[in-house]
Design a protein around this nucleic acid. Sequence first.
RNA 1: GGCGGCGUGGCCGAGCGGUUAGGCAGGGGCCUGCAAAGCCCUCCACUCCGGUUCGAAUCCGGACGCCGCCUCCA
Length: 458
Amino acid sequence: MIRLFDSLKTEVRPLRLREPGKVSMYVCGPTVYGLPHMGHGRFTLVWDMLRRWLTFQGYDVNFVSNITDIDDKIINLAAAQGTTESAIADRYEQEWWTAMAKIGVAPPTHSPHATDYVAEMVTLIEELASQDIAYRLSDGMYFDTSRVADYGALAGQPLDSLRAGARIETVEEKRSPLDFALWKNAKEGEPSWPASFGAGRPGWHTECVVMSLGLLGDGFDLHCGGLDLKFPHHENERAQAVASGHPFAQHWAHNGFVMVDGEKMSKSLDNFTSLTDLLNRTDPRAYRLLVLRSHYRSPIEVSPATIEDAERALDRLDSLARRFELPALAGEEFVSAANQPAGMLSDRVTEYLEDDLNSPLAVAALFEALSQANTLADEGQGDEAQNLAEAINTLFGALGLTLRGQSSAIDAESAEIVKLRDQAREGKNWTEADRLRDSLVKLGWVVEDSPTGTVIRR
RNA sequence: GGCGGCGUGGCCGAGCGGUUAGGCAGGGGCCUGCAAAGCCCUCCACUCCGGUUCGAAUCCGGACGCCGCCUCCA
């Protein structure tokens, strides 16, 4: 079984499964109040890779990732635009799924919406309140963090230092500055749900704990998310589960940040890049390759240069697919366990990935194999080369990266020019042949001469 | 202030005591009417100063620089 760094135990350890052969994993999804950004792209790609790999290994993966469709930011945006919260949430959820499809992230097994689980959230808060773990203040319900013995375990810091660092509180009557809102009382004109402790809406931390436990059950296997969610979001999810007597995630995994010019990408620094925009401008596979080529816990530098680098590397992969006529795999489809190739390459890739998801080493091994396959083919060992190329294709496919050997359909006009150019070349009329090549290039084709004549592709 | 992480060749990015990481770019070659694409080969490293060791990018100590979390955040 794969070994992963566990943020709670701060060590790499095997992922243990509640049920043999079945993986239950939860990934904190987006709050839909804007276009997805590069950070969203990274976390979805990283956990999609893990999910695909586990599926490829024959595990039955129950992958839950939520949509947070009620939140202060959604409310504020709706007010600013004079529209409803649900209109905002719907619109950006659409954008989200469009981007996910484009980048080849497979849809979750379940993608719960926070607003569909409010009743369960109310029940949880009532339960906590009955034990005085949740308490009421003027603006809502709060969680008493002192009631969880190991609160701060995920943060990896002593409680004192967390308390010392806490900013000036707006709600001064909280029992501790660390206590967090479970429920926010309804305000004029804002969406709200009824509750015994007063109409209002749930706090973010309560949403995720209810949805994850609700769909995956007590003691599910793995909880994933961006490093910035570790504290306080994940800490607070865990606190609520522990306090209400539910064993929570047995393993925690966090991915690193997207960096721009050496700094964490964030809206406040105005170095924010929209994923939607990137996917419209570049080959969507480039970002996946970029993510695969760095370790999931390391920061990655995203810039036009690193994306272009990946696009060129992709060219080489595609040319392998062309040379060996490999089928296009992956996309929204999984490469199934039944297709696992035998051999040393597969063993190496497996070994690397099982060691805390070392995809950079796995990709390096695949590129080495690419050279090897080409060399074998050059030396006339066609069958061996073909087998190796197919293994490379399958293994990249298992990680969600599709190799594309097929060129796009050729229109009648271009086909005619190709025909004319081949005639010109046959007659050794190089001037005319070059002129026709130029016109094909202007139409956006890459023009190559082959033993059978002009070959064009895009 | 507290806690944690990082500093690798032109760029990205692995590495966890001894072996070529890998990719992109650069250089050379093959192929080609010329190209393009592709293939093959190849130059270029480990922030600095001490220490441990037969041997350190890798371990220890120190210096400098950078980043993150502690606050909404993937």
